[in-house]
Computed example of a mutant assay.
Amino acid sequence: MDTKPEFQRVLIKLSGEALMGNQGFGIMPEMIAYVAAEVAKVFHLGVEVSIVVGGGNIFRGVAGSSAGMDRTSADNMGMLATVINSLALCDALEKLDIPTRVQSAIRMDRVAEPFIRRKAIRHLEKGRVVIFAAGTGNPYFTTDTAAVLRANEIRAQILFKATQVEGVYDKDPQIHDDAVMFDTLSYMQVIEKQLHVMDMTAISLAMEHDLPLQVLNLHTAGNIYKAVTGGEIGTRIYNT
């Protein structure tokens, strides 16, 4: 496998659940250290790395809404949860001597920079990892949509969605033993087959702006590195 990066600027989408390990809630120190080490492998290739992390390990807006909470209030709480995860990941990366900045879509200047597109790009050009927190800053939008939005704004060449499974399947592999994984898909196929890759807002935005997406398993060490250097892992989704 080639050790030269296929991409110069990438965005990595991490689920909040990935940070809790086997705890069932919160942030598992060993897991966030593992994630930081995986990001470091890519960073040391000279790739400009940005990250969007979810907040589902702390609070999910949709879950709060379904339990009777006002949806806007619940989503605001979910966005704040992503800030907690972003600060934790920033700390873990800086422990590895990787300069990192957190930019929040909700202003909280004591703990994070406000999201400013040109400043984010400048950080990347100067060799800093940028973590985009607080989603889009608006309720009713997922962190998947935030990831696609930020990737388009900073002109990332690809979005990597690091998940709990190997790639995109025709049905849930945790329920169906005969589930088949796709190596490649078009965005239209994702829509037509109603595959649960990201929410439809995120998929439509990625398709409209011709942003490639690669889904891979975060828990296999080296997977993000392999994807960045052109390895055939997971599922690649793009316009045909």
Rank of each mutant, 00 (worst) to 15 (best):
Q174Y: 11
A146L: 03
A156Q: 03
A179H: 04
D178T: 06
D172C: 10
A179S: 04
E166L: 11
V168Y: 05
D170I: 12
V148I: 14
T184F: 12
Q157M: 09
Q174K: 15
N152M: 14
E153P: 04
R155W: 06
T184I: 11
H176F: 15
T184P: 08
D170K: 09
A147Q: 01
R150S: 03
D170S: 05
Y169W: 08
Q164K: 15
V168P: 04
V148P: 03
T163I: 07
F182G: 01
A179W: 05
D177Q: 14
N152Q: 12
A151G: 11
R150T: 02
A147C: 06
I158W: 04
D170L: 09
I158L: 03
D183S: 14
F182V: 05
A156D: 02
V180Q: 14
Y169C: 10
Q164R: 15
I175V: 15
G167E: 00
D177V: 09
V148N: 00
I154D: 00
A147R: 02
V165K: 07
E166M: 12
A146F: 00
G167T: 00
E166K: 14
D177F: 09
I175G: 06
V168D: 07
K161Y: 06
V180K: 15
A147I: 03
V180P: 06
I154N: 01
E153R: 04
E153M: 08
A146N: 00
L149A: 11
Q174P: 04
V148Y: 01
I158K: 03
A156K: 01
A179D: 04
D178E: 12
N152T: 13
A151H: 07
D172L: 08
L159H: 01
A146C: 04
F182W: 05
N152Y: 11
P173A: 07
A179I: 03
P173T: 10
F182C: 04
Q174S: 12
G167N: 00
I158E: 02
D172H: 10
V165S: 05
Q174M: 12
I158G: 01
D170M: 08
L159D: 00
A179T: 08
V165N: 07
A179Y: 04
Q157S: 14
V180Y: 11
Q174V: 14
F182R: 02
K171Y: 08
I154R: 00
A147G: 03
E153C: 06
F160I: 03
K171P: 08
Q164P: 05
I154S: 00
K171G: 05
V148F: 07
F160T: 00
P173H: 06
T163H: 05
Q174L: 13
V180M: 13
Q174A: 13
D178Q: 07
I175L: 14
